[in-house]
Each structure stands twice: as C-alpha cells, then as structure tokens.
Amino acid sequence: MKWIISSCFLILLYGCSALPDVKPWQKGHLAKEEMTFGSDGFDDAFDDHIYFSKEASSGGRGLGGGGCGCN
C-alpha cells in the first residue's frame, strides 16, 4: 500500500510541474473566498460532526478529529 501512495504523490508532483502557471494578474477569480478550499469551513464543521457520529468514516478534507462519544 505504501508504494501505491508514494507513487500517487510522485505522479501528482510531476503533474504539477507540467501544469501551466497561473500568473498573478490572472487570479481574480481564484482570489474569491468561495474559490478557496475551506471557504465553507463553518458549515463543514457541522456536517463533519454529524457524519462522524452516524458513519464509520471520518477525515479526508481535514484532520479526522472527533472528540465526542456520539452514542
């Protein structure tokens, strides 16, 4: 499993070097809050708490966390 994960990241890193650069003056849309990851963090925290309590998975977009009995 470790080599699969390592390979994925190597491919990703290699892929990034081949991606076109976005110039600073082209980042008008990317600078919008809604285009950043975590812009819905306030809502996501509520969802993550529910899904952590009701499903067997957690984490992914952030640290797994938990901190509740969630019986």
Partner: peptide, 15 residues
C-alpha cells in the same frame, strides 16, 4: 491552481 478558473486539492490522511 489549474487555470485562472480552476483549482484542485489532493489529500492523503492517516489516523
């Protein structure tokens, strides 16, 4: 950043 209109994220996590 993929383009002036697109952005992506890839995460690996272990707990």
């Amino acid at each position: 950043n993929l383009s002036p209109n697109a952005i992506m994220q890839a995460n690996y996590s272990v707990s």
